[in-house]
Write a protein that binds this DNA or RNA. Structure first.
Lengths: 227, 227
DNA sequence: TCTGTCAGATTGTCTGACAATCTTCGGGCC
DNA sequence: GGCCCGAAGATTGTCAGACAATCTGACAGA
């Protein structure tokens, strides 16, 4: 084989974006940015014309969105932006507690690398707050921190599941915050959680997480009901 | 509305199967039955001709399979049946432990209905064993029991995640058992687990689950390495 | 041995089309 | 006046055919 030991091109990375992917990306962006209200029908022809691609391509992109839970397909009635229900939010938070709780419980058996990821994700979140980053970015960093907690389990599948849950949350937040943007500062709370972890006080950390998720759920559900 | 109180047609259910769904079902069946070896390329034209549908329809069905993890898509190289790696199996089992463990921990706070589901699923598994059911059905019942454990959490999303994991396991089993079918009787072990639950001895039940999953993982990985 | 080139196969995407189904709207009937 | 019903329009689900881009493999040439 012609494989070199040092692999000098390891950092190179070609963006292999198919048309379908780019269409899906654009639709995702529009949903998260709140340009598309929940329940908005996503007409294939309109999107195809608007983006300058063909209908089959749009169709494929839509099935991707549906698989991700960002949209709903009703037979013979097309695809529309999913509407986050209060029950869904409650379920997402319950599921998050299971996944993130599992991560916390495995703090001690996690690798140094995984622990470092939690710290650095928290640091990035704090830095974003202090630099007055955009609302979107704060959300992103915040949720990335919670994903990193699941990363402590070392299980790619659990992380993937958490990322799915986070997508649903982002959808709900996009709907809620389209009306009133309230990305309030939660850095202290998260920093306290990490301190408990560093102190190996896992039970306290878990209790902390329980309260934190309950709070988040309460806020989102409340805001959702006002819609 | 003309809605009747007793809803006499509640049991009626029209199979609203689109062509895409039926193609996907057929492909799934073929994979689980071991007709398609892992790594087999799934050519769009061949499948379309073989099933008498058009290529776009097959394409959509394939993206469904890929989303489910049953197949892999490599850009410009098409879709092929996924190959279960030992690492994947280990990860699936680790993830299962988190989900099923969460179910067990919530046994007490589960509804009567959810607990009954666990019992009845176990009963169905045992009945299938005693009636010398087919290999496929035993597998199905066995895994259904484990799903019902996750059902104790009452979280539809966690159940959906577990079902995804189970799909991957079924794929691995299909590959392993294509060579040697070894659906050995595990009814006693599962019955013991339920007895521990009924006795509210959750810690023991959890330990039991840990061992059970470790055993299962060991067997599958071993059989996989022999391939 | 390595590189460049070419044919065949397969996918990614487009165009155009048609039937089935849903929605809407207006007409006829009580 | 209000309600059932049928026709028109819109949209999806599916199909057929086509073409460019890319991958594979083989073969010739430096």
């Amino acid at each position: 084989m012609t494989e070199l030991k040092h692999e000098p091109f390891r950092t190179l990375h070609l963006e292999h974006a198919s048309t379908v992917d780019r269409v899906a990306d654009e639709l995702r962006r529009a949903v998260f940015d709140g340009e598309l209200e929940s329940g908005t029908p996503l007409r294939e022809l309109a999107i195809a014309a608007s983006l300058g691609v063909s209908r089959p391509t749009v169709r494929e992109a839509l099935t991707v969105l549906v698989a991700e839970g960002l949209a709903m397909r009703e037979p013979n009635r097309g695809v529309s932006v999913a509407t986050p229900e209060a029950d869904s939010v409650r379920d997402v938070c319950a599921a998050r507690l299971v996944l993130e709780g599992a991560g916390i419980r495995q703090w001690r058996s996690a690798t140094e690398e995984q622990q470092a990821l939690v710290r650095s994700t928290l640091a990035a979140y704090i830095a974003a707050i202090e630099s007055d980053a955009s609302y979107q970015e704060l959300n992103e960093r915040h949720l990335a921190f919670h994903v990193s907690l699941v990363g402590l389990t070392g299980s790619p599948r659990l992380v993937a599941m958490q990322e799915n849950l986070v997508v649903e949350l982002k959808l709900a937040l996009a709907q809620v915050d389209r009306i009133r943007r309230n990305a309030h500062d939660q850095a202290d709370s998260h920093a306290a959680l990490v301190r408990l972890l560093e102190r190996d006080d896992l039970d306290a950390a878990y209790d902390f997480l329980v309260r934190h998720l309950a709070d988040a759920q309460g806020e989102i559900v409340e805001a959702l009901d006002l819609t």
